[in-house]
């Protein structure tokens, strides 16, 4: 198995990296660590300092937020997902916990490497903006829904 080539193919399927030339993706894969998490292990925990983002190569994981009432699962991510980018983009602590819900294989992309790639490939930056804007849109939608529900309940 040519692990590296496989990883490059995987990276290309992620919209964020779709426009990056293959040679650079290979370099990114070569310099990134491949890490396996067992079911129940955390990729990172909410509140930790963020030093890397992860591409999920196989398996799936839960996105969990700590609330005063305990842990709350907000999303589920699986193959080809790119997680953990917020903390390294904005230099803030992890906003959520990612916990493997089965055996998960990831490619760990270090913060400096990712930022450097962004600098070198403006397309990647635009892609990041697009993804984030997308997410903002859906979050706003959910927020509106939630507000409506609250109003209904209050009424």
């Amino acid at each position: 198995m040519a692990g590296l080539q496989h990883e490059v193919d995987l990276l290309r399927r992620i919209p964020l990296f779709a426009n990056v030339e293959p040679a650079k993706l290979k370099l990114l894969a070569f310099t990134s660590e491949r890490i396996t998490y067992e079911d129940g292990q955390e990729l990172f925990h909410q509140g930790d300092a963020g030093d890397a983002a992860y591409v999920i190569i196989s398996g799936s994981a839960d996105v969990i937020v700590d609330t005063p009432d305990g842990e709350f699962r907000v999303a589920h991510v699986d193959k080809n997902a790119f997680v953990g980018e917020i903390a390294i983009l904005c230099d803030v602590p992890r906003t959520a916990t990612i916990k493997a819900s089965e055996r998960v294989e990831t490619l760990k992309i270090m913060k400096e490497h990712f930022l450097r790639m962004l600098k070198e490939f403006p397309e990647m930056g635009i892609e990041v903006m697009r993804v984030l804007a997308d997410r903002l849109g859906s979050t706003t939608e959910e927020l509106t829904d939630a507000k409506n529900k609250i109003r209904e309940l209050q009424a």
Binding site: A23, K26, L27, F30, T31, S32, M110, E112, H113, R116
Partner: peptide, 20 residues
């Protein structure tokens, strides 16, 4: 060859070199 191909046009201070 792989290393030369991947790294040859990177500036010397590029963070990728740490992983080499």
């Amino acid at each position: 060859e792989t290393v030369a191909e991947l790294f040859s046009d990177l500036p010397e201070d590029h963070p990728f070199f740490e992983q080499l």
